[in-house]
Amino acid sequence: MKTKKFREPLTNTQLLMTITICIFFTMYLLSMIFLGGGFLRPQQIFDMLNDNASLIIVSLGLTIVMIGGGIDISVGAVTSLVVMSCVIYLNKGGSVIGSVLMALGIGLAFGVIQGFLISYLDIQPFIVTLAGMFFARGFTTILSVEPQKVAHEGFDVLRKAELKISWLGYTANNGNVIPGTIELGVFIALLCFVLVFILLKFVKLGRAFYAIGGNQASALMLGIDVKKTRFMSYLICGLLSGISGFVFMMHTGAGNATNAAGMEMNAIASSIIGGTLLTGGVGDVVGTFFGTLTLTTIKKIVVASGLNDPWWQSITTGGMLCFFILLQSVVLNKRSKKKK
């Protein structure tokens, strides 16, 4: 991919993305060399994917919205609402297919309502999705304040479905061979990733997201239905939060009112680290994917390097975020000056 781009200069999107990917690999290599241990096992990467499948899905949706020049901070709360309602539905004796439909339905409903308010009524996206976040969080506690555990046979089968790769496993201290495990949720996340990638690269609608995010007026002159496109971006984001909720439930198997707390900010951070700009028009889901992995790797490194005080994890995350944001700003400023 890189060799192809050598002839023409990289666009801003590709440059920011490349920086992120390079930093991710350097960081991972360095931790493999200096920290060793878990980082040498492939399971470390699988664990990162297993734990963050739902975050990846949510970040994909958020990237689409951010490329379109908007913001959606309701995603974490919607995820939590989906988890709670699906858990309650399953425990009342519902079917697995019903719960999948329910997850998609809730996500879609949030997407449709928020998208309508933002694009057709012209209300600031921050306020609308803030209200969406309040509503979803509040409704989750109305459903149940107590944590709920899923007890459902059909769902347990789905939950236990995982791919075991024995040759990527490792031998534990007691001599047992533990195979590399990938959960079903990761495959759902990867499927979403591929679909969104195709949407953004090769589908007219996806290109329209970039157009309205880059310059709304010229997008209008190109004959793009700006309102409809913006509506679609929120709709897709809502749908992805619904899927993310289901994946979250498959990972934890329980519903809790504080599920996915702060997920929206993590998703925004992943998108930013991946090179998406909040101003719109710039961004790529490949970058977002690596952004999520980078964010998780930082946390893993902090734990592995023995900083066990509870505050270090978020302080280092903040520091790294600061580094990435500054780097992007400096790089972009330099480029825009060069062009002039």
Binding site: Y120, I127, A131, F134, G138
Partner: peptide, 21 residues
């Protein structure tokens, strides 16, 4: 804990009334 949900409904009503469209 439930206050947020009702708050959200009122906020949406307010901003809809205030929206330019």
């Amino acid at each position: 804990t439930d206050v947020k949900a009702y708050k959200a409904i009122v906020i949406v009503l307010l901003v809809v009334i205030g929206s330019p469209v």
